[in-house]
Write a protein that binds this DNA or RNA. Structure first.
Lengths: 308, 308
DNA sequence: CAGTTGACTGAATGGACGTTTAACGACATA
DNA sequence: TATGTCGTTAAACGTCCATTCAGTCAACTG
């Protein structure tokens, strides 16, 4: 009994793999049982022996790649570090990992996505998987928002946006595999996150003046600091009735040219000036520029240190 | 001659529209010429009269929705305002406009994308369209970067990311049309851009707004600032179990000598360093050094209120 | 060694589909 | 009215495909 079922499972797996290959090569519409059986090195009739019908074979194929995908992604999350950003980071890596992100498998995904709209069984399976994936991403974003001090960001929006971007890159890969670069895609996903979580996902800065790297690069990197400062300032200027460059310059007591230097990330305010900026834009300006590093810094100073 | 060609074009268009409907309802694999002709209210044989083959009909169908899509998007850009961000904004709107963003058409797009991988004619057409679309997006991003003073941002990365996110939302719409909301999708696309171009795409922030006004001369006095800073620092050092100069220097990432310069009022921290000090000695450090400046300024909440 | 079971084959079947084609009606022309 | 063209139809043809099934082969059983 165990032997026969072992053979059965092996054959089923063999046929499913052949189906993936066939869909990858000939497309969904062009995949026939004869091709599948031929790919598996078996005769055509065997398919209806191990699967009731072609439809059952295709459903089983979808189930397998869905299971494989979900298992891979969950494992990647579980293996991620303990920092709030680590699982998100791991998920991005997982979605472009050669283990599941091959041209063949991406082709199969799109084949089933396209058919899902007219075939309820596909749609149900895909929809549920997508829901679980989204909910997981949303929870990770929420945790990052809570623990990172990013109140005011909508975790659901970030999660849908990130998922959408990843799926979109899958499409790019499907259509132009030659022009596609994994690392660029991952970097761009992180570019999205860097605009929202600047501490955990530092934005790549082009012109970086000499950095003083005595402490943690993350928290103390000078170029990153300037970039965050520039972003925080820009966000508070022109739009929505905010002050202009001239008004801000006057308020802080510098020239508009100086402010423009800050906005470009070329210069930075003096300690007096940035203090005024913090006061002017209280209460979110400081955390936005410096991040929620206060607690971490105090921990570094030791126990009974520095009560304000 | 003109009459016959008019009939010909009408019939072709009729059949193409029927093909779109059929693919939308039955999927690519489930679409037959009998269905298409029936949908168009014609007999099956007529298809091979106006199109050489089924393949030609399908290619013509893809060409039509591609042309329609491209025309719509280019017109939207052309009709956009003159500000550097307007075309990007218009493109986002266009991609979710009910004119081209219907469940039927999105289904057809995915059907062809899925088949593109095994059918060279589809792939060529789709690939070229995607290239033009990307290049247009990239140019718009580049213009925004140049004119908006965002040096250091990679226009290509922003463009690929935005395009990917939009395509990903199309997938969301395909799989779960019920749960999909156009406005949320567009807002999330703009959320991505808000992290990069905060001036043109303001991020919705929930917290209390701050204010900007002209600061009093004495509040800006540099020497007084340094003196208050030195006092505030001294108060938190040696006595009462606080950190020593070396510890503080290490925490902020500077030399002890630098810290002594601050304590003497001879030098002052950089903007990055003082931000870290504020974080270290939160919450009373900032008001002690800068005084009630922020509160005083906010009391005068004027017209040009800044969103915090 | 005969008998039985299970895995697998490959030809047969029946239906669906794309394509072809002969025929038909409407309309214009002569 | 006769003739020819154009648009269209519907039946017929040939192919391909999923499915079925009788039969083969090997391994195991008693």
């Amino acid at each position: 009994m165990s032997k026969t079922s072992a053979v059965k499972e092996a054959r089923q797996r063999q046929l499913i793999d052949a189906t993936v290959t066939s869909i990858g090569r000939r497309g969904y519409a062009g995949t026939t049982l004869t091709h599948v059986a031929g790919e598996a090195g078996l005769s055509p009739g065997i398919v209806n022996f191990y699967f009731k019908s072609k439809e059952q074979l295709l459903i089983a194929t979808l189930e397998q790649i869905a299971d494989e995908y979900e298992a891979f992604w969950k494992e990647a999350i579980a293996a991620a570090g303990e920092s709030p950003a680590a699982p998100l980071d791991a998920m991005i890596d997982a979605d472009f990992d050669p283990a599941i992100f091959t041209h063949e498998k991406v082709s199969v995904w799109f084949a089933f996505w396209a058919e899902a709209q007219s075939q309820p069984p596909y749609r149900r399976l895909v929809s549920k998987l997508e829901s679980r994936y989204f909910e997981s991403t949303r929870a990770m974003c929420q945790r990052l928002i809570d623990e990172g001090g990013y109140a005011g960001i909508d975790a659901g929006a970030v999660a849908t946006g990130l998922n959408a971007m990843i799926d979109g890159f899958w499409l790019d890969f499907l259509i132009d595999p030659r022009d596609f670069d994994r690392e660029t895609a991952k970097r761009t996903c992180r570019l999205f996150l860097s605009g929202l979580f600047p501490n955990e996902f530092p934005r790549p800065v082009h012109a970086a003046p000499g950095a003083v790297a005595t402490a943690d690069a993350h928290e103390l990197d000078r170029a990153a600091h300037r970039a965050r400062l520039a972003t925080a300032l820009r966000r508070r200027l022109a739009p929505g009735g905010g002050p202009g460059v001239k008004q801000l310059a006057a308020a802080v007591g510098v020239t508009p040219e100086t402010v423009r230097g800050w906005l470009d990330g070329e210069t930075e305010p003096s300690s007096r000036e940035i203090g005024l900026l913090c006061g002017l834009f209280d209460p979110l300006f400081w955390p936005e520029v410096y991040g929620p590093t206060g607690a971490a810094l105090r921990r570094r100073l030791g126990a009974g240190a520095a009560q304000g």
